[in-house]
Write a protein that binds this DNA or RNA. Structure first.
Lengths: 200, 200, 200, 200
DNA sequence: AATGAATGAGGTTTCATTCAT
DNA sequence: GATGAATGAAACCTCATTCAT
């Protein structure tokens, strides 16, 4: 967000440029969804209807392109997380979790990147924002007694990433997704819910 | 005519050939561990200290090489599974699960393949054998009341693959691994009578 | 939006691209002439003074390159055939035949391909056009009594291909070419009235 | 042919060695017949049932192998030529010519080599012997008035090679072969056979 | 002599990236 | 800013030939 009143030297981006940027991102999401992160930059350009040079003007590196896609995805997810927290606070976390895993199959290579080191250490802010959103839902769920208070964010994030990946590459069907998530959610549930004494 | 009892009909593979095969596999495991399954065959050859042609004599295709590594790994795992079932039947499944996830970090791209479609339709027998071994442990764990009887093999396999992948690409440290697995194991525990006997 | 009347919808190919395409074709003709159709694409690139990638941008496959060369040749030949039919209708066939055989020595691997199956099922239209042109000349020659009416196009084409190949790979000198063609032309002459008019 | 009584130092070749040599040649003839002269040496070894090293012990170079095959063929042809001259002197040349062209289809890459420069300048003696045999038949045919006296050996050899090549690569069927050879033989026939006056 | 493993140059092809137009 | 041709470093793979066994 540029400081207001400073729009001078770095132009706000021409209309066509912005339009191209968008089309490239859309095309890239498609291509990488289909072919994994090894899809070619040329293919992205072709589908976006621009020349290869234009892709590189907007994203100097293939990794930049991948990072941008991920940024997009994360932003959407954060938005969804916010909406959920407002409407169904108790199970917001579980609903969100489920939704991500279900969508994984449709966003192939993006989730792929999420878990990898492909997009090196960049956009950490974004990831933080996302983690914060999930953290909020976690806290809420613990407050309302839906999740055990001992659970911490890192393992939730880790499980989220793992199961997304799994659903993605493993091609889990509806039922398997359900059964896997049942296990995970049961594991997150308060220990109090369970009979009682946890020997040792 | 060779002296009887000296050389069988299907020659057992020359000493240097066997040595090279081993070195190539070791090198490949390293290379793919570091660079993912996109590491180059040339690099493998270089590290193995052989010429590129030698790699291709042993593994006519890059995929053959990847498949061989995976075969190796699965064989080891099956062996470990067998040993575990004998020595500590109650918690064999959990111990095994834990071990795999822990080792994942050290065997990068192999686990990578396990979850992917990289090595296409090959070594399905091996995978079956592996799944069977896990299935045995699951049944055992359910018999002894360590795992809920409603749990079925597919979700166990799915969770195994997911968490291995996660540990691998996410770079989980010792503690995170512990916490994630605690959640999973809690989720697998019997619902009615969970507290009773969770080994240790 | 380009000024109207300046750049048509399907751009006419950039100057450097056209230049390179030409140079590649020329280089390829040379290389394949010298080394047969097994000459390497790299060598073609080197002689054309372009990078290897440029060759593949213009001709995605080695076969495409070979096909392009052949297309070039056939087009020239068809043009020549047309011109000949107009100017010296009686002996157009013989003159054309002679010319092809003579040039064969200079266009090595192209003629090579003509007779082979190398360039698989491509440019069949071109070949048809060529055969048609020869067919026209044959009919003309038969009408004017230069060639026996029993002769049919297939054997003419076959003899054309054979002798071109022969001249090419056998390295026939001027005189040998003359003597071989004399035999062939004598064989094509009318049986009843052969002596009448054998041009020259 | 070693001078008699000199068999000492260079051993006469062990029985198995001779057997292998033969099998390699047979295999090579098959392989090169099917795949052209680009068939691989390994394939030859495989079909001969020997190891690759054995092939190279007998023929230090791929070209040596090709040359040996050609030598074989030429020897056969010379023998056939001799037999023919004895039995049907008038048309020995035409019969021989026809036979070669017909067999071409079955001896692919060998004829291929015959016309090419592949097997560099080697086995020239053999070729000479072969040419001599054809020369004998030509002279005979001219003596008996079957071939025009102006015809010389070079063009006969050239036509022989060309049409063999043509039949080989062009895949001529029985009829086309017949029609082409009819033209050639007509072209070789005595000019006297034809009406008479060669006006102009 | 035979074996077959090893070599390594070379072949075709892909693709991220640069740069003239 | 956009275009798309050019670049050139790999990548995977083949195969004639050498050499230890």
């Amino acid at each position: 967000m540029p400081p207001p009143g400073t729009t001078g030297p770095d132009r706000p981006m021409r209309a066509d440029a912005r339009r191209n940027r968008t089309r490239i991102l859309e095309a890239a999401e498609l291509v990488f969804a289909e072919q994994g992160s090894s899809g070619s930059t040329e293919e992205v350009a072709r589908r976006a209807g621009v020349a290869i040079g234009t892709v590189f003007r907007h994203f100097p590196t293939k990794d930049d392109l991948l990072a941008a896609i991920m940024k997009n995805l994360l932003e959407q997810l954060v938005a969804e997380a916010g909406a959920l927290s407002d409407s169904e606070p108790r199970t917001a976390l579980f609903t969100f979790f489920t939704r991500i895993v279900e969508q994984a199959a449709a966003r192939k290579a993006v989730v792929d990147l999420l878990a990898r080191n492909g997009v090196e250490i960049r956009l950490p802010e974004l990831v933080t924002v996302f983690a914060d959103a999930v953290g909020d839902m976690l806290r809420q769920a613990q407050t309302t007694g839906t999740v055990d208070p001992d659970i911490r964010l890192p393992e939730v994030m880790a499980l989220l990433a793992s199961t997304s990946q799994g659903a993605l590459h493993g091609g889990w069907d509806r039922e398997l997704r359900r059964r896997v998530l049942d296990v995970v959610f049961a594991g997150l549930a308060p220990k109090a819910d369970r009979p009682t004494d946890r020997a040792r």
